[in-house]
Nucleic acid binder design. Structure first.
Lengths: 253, 253
DNA sequence: AGCTTATGGTCTTATTTCATACCAATACCC
DNA sequence: GGGTATTGGTATGAAATAAGACCATAAGCT
């Protein structure tokens, strides 16, 4: 509607850098915290290591950490065996949330609907090492036993774990990315906790299918599971979007 | 094998910035040229615009352009109606190609096998505007009529075009990205031109399926099409990888 | 011919980011 | 209790990048 300067839809001229390194480092750290990669109460890697991991100078990293500290996401302790710790209570009212953008919601949900079922299917097809099995089961157990206020990070971590064992690093990255966007969207709407049990049952189904190598069932189970989030977000948009058809990315027959 | 420090497979700590802005700008421009986004002989946007599009200062952009010019990818003309033009003959022997990394090949092909069929399926399910139809058909025609030495960019452009009309910008970005990696891989092996006709027939099939709204057929056709590239690359790796099963990411029924 | 104008070419300055070295604290170890 | 090693805290100079002004060129226009 707003823009149809097609002919050359120019999608790929995305910026080389998004903002400055400082802001992007904050973003990245926050993303990892929200994704549950850094569990609550755990210690982040030492500044020198973390800076190298993020490909950023220690000065820049420290600026970012200072910001996170000021916002109450992490606490810092000096001296040997000190470090930066993830606060257990993420700051509640983090200010005014931006509105949900319908186009963005659609985009994220669509992309997720492509990636995650495929990841589950690939994971089922792959022969998993014992370590990978353990990783998956651990993530499953953690989300199942998570208290309500920590559910989302654990949930995110679980979904990323599936992609991690799917065997394609690129896919895992993409899933982590889109999942983090989903978390962002969910953070903008009040936390109604409709049916964690249902969700956990679906998680179990996905893992079961993966472990018994049933790629078809894993694909389907993942797809079903995403429906919940999709409905929730679409519901909040008011306009009752046509729900994703049950076979969104897969051919029927 | 080499690394199993699992327990926390730490996939998501990717660097915030990859190298410096200068190198990344070169990379991005080269990618767009190879993807055929800037057709041969066409004029790039003016430096001031291009710099803004890429989110980079004009100085940095100019450094990058100078490098591309030195390497023979573009030519520059001053004065009004001047500009930076894409050379028709990309420099041939661009030096020693790095070896094909089997893990990378697998990763890219797997990820592509997830994205592109899904994109085709989504495109078929979407109701395309006349402009989008035109865009798709134009891309199809261009690749079909491309001379051998320009086949790959046009081919890449076509595949990206499918993703563009699929309705998810994120998906389009991801496809462009992975397709660019495929091009990189293909550039490292001698150009045997086995069966352009076959490839073009498959392109036609995909578009037909999309235009008549048959998502199932579109998915399948795209999947079949990717098999060719996969076999080619796997063949060059020597070890006859188990080929992607025909129903790689989709359940049957 | 001369003017206009959009473009690449050059220069200067401010800001960001990096790299490095060094200081300060503090829990463990002997 | 004192040593030690690891960690966050601080400072400084170099390099990269950005932002902006201005010059040079050359095609079109009058």
């Amino acid at each position: 509607m707003e823009e149809e300067l097609l002919g050359s839809p120019a999608p790929i001229l995305r910026p080389v850098r998004h903002g400055n390194a400082f802001e992007e480092t904050i973003e990245r750290l926050l993303q990892n915290i929200k994704l549950g990669l850094f569990g609550v109460g755990t210690k982040l890697p030492a500044e020198r290591e973390l800076a190298e991991m993020l490909g950023v100078s220690r000065a820049t990293l420290r600026d970012a950490l200072a910001e996170l500290q000021k916002a109450g996401y992490v606490e810092v302790q000096r001296g040997r065996y000190g470090g930066t710790y993830v606060c257990s209570r993420p700051p509640a009212g983090s200010g005014s949330y931006p509105e949900l953008d319908p186009a963005e919601v659609d985009d994220v949900l669509t992309f997720r609907g492509v990636l995650e079922p495929a990841a589950a299917s690939l994971a089922a097809r792959a022969t998993l090492s014992p370590a990978q099995r353990g990783h998956l089961l651990r993530a499953l157990a953690e989300v199942a036993s998570a208290p309500a206020n920590l559910y989302r990070p654990k949930d995110a971590r679980f979904h990323v774990a599936i992609a991690e064992v799917a065997g394609s690093p690129s896919l895992a990255l993409a899933v982590a990315d889109v999942r983090s966007k989903v978390s962002d969207l969910l953070d903008r709407i009040p936390l109604i906790q409709p049916n964690l049990e249902h969700s956990n049952r679906q998680h179990q189904e996905i893992v079961d299918a993966i472990l018994r190598g049933d790629d078809e069932a894993a694909f389907k189970a993942a797809q079903d599971h995403l429906q919940g989030t999709a409905s929730l977000l679409h519901g909040f948009l008011g306009h009752s979007q046509p729900e994703v058809s049950p076979q969104s990315t897969a051919p029927q027959r």
